[in-house]
Design a protein around this nucleic acid. Structure first.
Lengths: 210, 210
DNA sequence: CTCTGGTAACTTACCCGCGGGTCAAATCGC
DNA sequence: GCGATTTGACCCGCGGGTAAGTTACCAGAG
């Protein structure tokens, strides 16, 4: 594009901007289907700048992955700490996730990208976040199964995978329906949860943080 | 590898073999992450043979996709025709899918490959199968929601997406646990379904086809 | 039964563009 | 001037795709 030379954008700020745009592209086409030329074009900068800041395509993806992982883990652990149970816990967790993903929906898809590189640096980092999130989800699932008299660990494992994918479906459905607000999505999950598990006693969202 | 010249394998048989191996590789690495060189190596043949039979990488994927689509649509439509409802319908459908996927588990992942090429020839073919499957699933979901007094079409759409992903989770969990037989998977879904929806009145698998 | 041509089944060797990655220079703020 | 920021131009391997030749099988002709 233009000439060389600084445009007065500090490194930290530029890095944030690149991560945000790269996240969007990775989310749309997957890691394997994304070219850094495309990312650079989207960001309005040149490819070598990305390499100068992130070292490699994997490095850039790792930065996006860390951003996503930090946010998602924070949300799920904070929500789990509220001490809710059952249906209410599920609905509030979803609501908090929608809130966290509203500004950057790409985080979810990047975190679950099936074409993620197999480099140990990436897989280990991903596994660290995934393990923490999985632990929280599995705890809730065990609780639910225990109430039904089921303590089979493999049942719990399969059910946790199913629950995570329900999550995934709702987030993706939301991304595919940009007209829906966070509030309307949460109301929807309340209705759907009631249809599956039966109605709840009280308003599940009373006194929840914004 | 060896010399040129026919090895006495008829075209139809070779095509089946290539589709089966390509399906496995596509399922493992996704369309975007798969190279035909790798597929040819796996199949023990050379790359031009694949091109001579399938024309292009997209053509090969289309063949895998059609194989998967035909099988999956047949299963879901046949099962829907049994006239079951609610929990029983869900469990029996899963059981029939496990049976159909047992010999070629790659079919499910290929059909749901998010890195699938965007060529109209592919997307249209996929959409045709997906629409038929989706229609069956959506019908069951509408039924369930209607019983709970909910007739919102968007709720139904979101719930159908969630249900399909539950499916996806269980199939992938199965693929990741090769020790599990179809029977043990089905027993597991019965237990999990009971934990979520409450126990069923009768044996859901009485008199079902093998 | 053999010879011969045709065809179907294959392979080696290659082309070419795309995309990851690098170098050295150019430009700007201070 | 000096360092941080930024770029155009380039290298190179990988992977999709192709051209042309090689081998085996199977007619039918003699």
């Amino acid at each position: 594009m233009g000439k060389a030379g600084t445009k007065g954008v500090a490194r930290a700020e530029r890095e944030r901007q690149i991560v945000d745009i790269a996240g969007r592209v990775f989310a749309e086409h997957g890691y394997a289907g994304t070219s850094l030329t495309a990312v650079a074009a989207q960001a309005g900068i040149s490819k070598p700048l990305i390499y100068s800041y992130f070292g490699s395509k994997e490095g850039l993806f790792a930065a996006c992955l860390s951003t996503a992982g930090e946010v998602l883990v924070e949300v799920i652990e904070r929500t789990a700490g509220l001490g809710l149970v059952g249906q209410q816990r599920a609905v509030v967790t979803l609501d908090q996730f929608f809130a966290a993903l509203e500004p950057r929906p790409w985080m979810w898809r990047v975190f679950r990208d099936p074409t993620m590189p197999a480099a140990p640096e990436i897989t280990e980092r991903h596994a660290r976040y995934a393990r923490r999130m999985h632990a929280v989800g599995a705890e809730g699932v065990r609780e639910l199964l225990h109430l039904a008299g089921n303590d089979d660990p493999l049942d719990s494992s399969a059910m946790t995978a199913a629950w995570v994918n329900v999550f995934d479906a709702l987030v993706n459905w939301w991304i595919d329906h940009p007209g829906e607000s966070r509030a309307s999505m949460t109301a929807r999950t309340v209705r759907l949860s009631a249809a599956v598990f039966g109605p709840m006693e009280s308003d599940p969202l009373a006194d929840q943080p914004g």
